[in-house]
Design a protein around this nucleic acid. Structure first.
Lengths: 329, 329
DNA sequence: GCCATGCATAGACCATTATCTATAACTGCT
DNA sequence: AGCAGTTATAGATAATGGTCTATGCATGGC
């Protein structure tokens, strides 16, 4: 008959009840809750009706829970506690201390982003980060499909739905094996290289695109080429004398005794990696936290010569953007 | 800033939310809950505002929870589950399958009540029973103070605030050691016993009171007496030849080769044990369940010659009483 | 037996909620 | 571009909830 009607049960009601049980007195509970005594009495009555069972009984002046009341007290404590936990969780989430986000990187960036992600995830062990790698074309697809929270491009797609912030120089250089004929020269014209064999990244990769564009601007066409979809493979190929290549400096190890960078005219090709954030996808607090972290710790994580930290501007733009969006009536 | 305001959070809201998350669709949830779609939409909005964080996002047609939403879902499940448990608990409580009650027994009744309590608590292992023993006077004090849920008296106090139901004959007999001079006689007048030494229970005990009253009615006075506050001690005392005694038949073991019951005129003194229930104290469901159990199983638990089961009447009276009380506007 | 204290009930009030219908805006698919 | 289905917004309304003040009732101490 008197079913427990959970429908109109409020957390407030439970809070009041818990206070009453703890203090053993309606009046005292009312004082603690800054309410009047009748208010509390009535809440108790409602609660009792919802439960369909007497909850409290008077034992020489003190209100003591009945059997049902004791169990309700336990349940209330647990339930209220659970939501306090949830509140804490929310706070952590908002502070970027926990949660998750995903980030999509063009392949070449994988040589340097771990330097940031490592320290970050050590400082924020509760944040789950997913990293996707691929060449520029694949990253563009993910970007279109809004699959990730952050993207790293050197040459981003049109920013109509996104915002960008540069954070790292990404110079492209021509590398040759250490014993190459041109290795000692102080200055080399591009025209001198056109008959050399070049090891190229696949079409669709950013490195390839940049180099192709540059050549095209100059109206030049390469001689024999060999295509490999891996920076590593190319680097080793060059070291082994397979030919020359255009690579991001980040691909080269700090010490590279078997490779030399050729001082070609017009090179290095300057470009910058940037974090890209879609404006039409809510940025998780954790991702924003990562950007803050990057902005603050970048200088400790990468070599100074590559530094180019414009993340402050991005972060500022972001908060302005979300303010405006959230303020919508 | 946007603190989690748990105050106006309803369980209903969580139920709706859980349904939406499960079905991945507002419309579908509305159908399941027999609500209109806008209603559900608005509930979600309110919930989202209370949490201060987006909870759901559209992922190619399906609503999936955000990070915060996932955690809220977990919390909601737990919380709703906890109250379902509580509901089950209540059902068990109402059915008398669990809970607790206390029962106060005059000492003599302790020879027979375990025969009922044993089978009862085997059948209802979740019910916690507390039994208090003492002589009649002590039990009366407990009764006045409303310390227990059930009382067992042979001669109860005035029933202005209580109801009673007899359940067991309690004949008082005169016992003598097996070799006693009067042991073989077919009929004995009380006058013949007055010079015998009697072992008596203490004043305040029911047995003593009954015997005293009986003697008083007949205008007789006992000879030498010896007082002991224990039925056991008296029984053994009689068996050892210390004198005669008036005892409840229940105190005698089924076989008692060292004792005989004297066929005294006017004896046995007939009295009945009864369960007493205060009307001004809510009877726990479990206690009521015990009375039901007693009513049904009494014949299997005690010797037939002691049977006197009027508990049905008590139970009926109880339910009428509580109906009337509960119906009060 | 009276007074202080604490609890319950009654009546009133306003804010919030739950719910609807109608309609607009969006989304994915063809 | 249009359609079907889904979601969001607006406006309305009845019920509920949370709170108060005033008052009645019980109880324990002096």
């Amino acid at each position: 008959m008197a079913e427990l009607n959970v429908r109109h049960l409020t957390f407030r009601l439970l809070q009041v009840y818990v206070t009453v049980v703890r203090s053993g007195s309606v009046s005292e509970a009312a004082r603690q809750l800054h309410l009047t005594q009748p208010t509390v009495s009535q809440q108790l009555k409602r609660l009792g009706e919802a439960v369909g069972e007497p909850l409290l009984e008077n034992q020489r002046g003190r209100l003591v829970p009945t059997e049902a009341g004791r169990e309700l007290y336990r349940a209330s404590r647990e339930v209220l506690g659970r939501f306090e936990d949830f509140d804490e969780y929310l706070t952590a989430l908002r502070g970027g201390e926990r949660g998750r986000f995903s980030i999509a990187l063009v392949n070449t960036a994988q040589y340097v982003l771990p330097r940031l992600l490592g320290p970050y995830s050590q400082a924020h062990p509760e944040v789950e980060v997913t990293v996707h790698f691929g060449n520029r074309r694949q990253m563009l697809t993910r970007f279109e499909r809004q699959e990730d929270d952050l993207y790293v491009f050197s040459h981003p797609p049109p920013l109509t739905h996104a915002m960008a912030g540069r954070f790292l120089r990404n110079p492209l250089v021509v590398v040759a094996p250490v014993g190459h004929a041109l290795a000692g020269r102080e200055r080399i014209a591009m025209s001198e290289l056109l008959h050399e064999r070049f090891l190229l990244r696949e079409p669709g990769s950013a490195t390839r695109m940049l180099f192709d564009n540059w050549l095209h601007e100059q109206g030049r066409v390469l001689g024999p080429t060999l295509q490999m979809a891996s920076n590593e493979a190319i680097r080793i190929g060059v070291a082994s004398g397979m030919g020359l290549a255009v690579l991001s400096e980040h691909v080269l190890p700090p010490e590279h005794p078997d490779l030399v960078i050729l001082p070609v005219e017009g090179l290095p090709l300057e470009s910058h990696w940037q974090f890209i954030v879609r404006r039409d996808r809510r940025l998780p607090h954790a991702a924003q936290g990562f950007l803050r972290f990057a902005s603050e710790h970048l200088d400790k994580c990468v070599e100074t010569r590559f530094l180019c930290n414009e993340l402050d501007t991005l972060l500022e733009g972001l908060s302005r953007h979300w303010e405006r969006t959230a303020a919508g009536p």
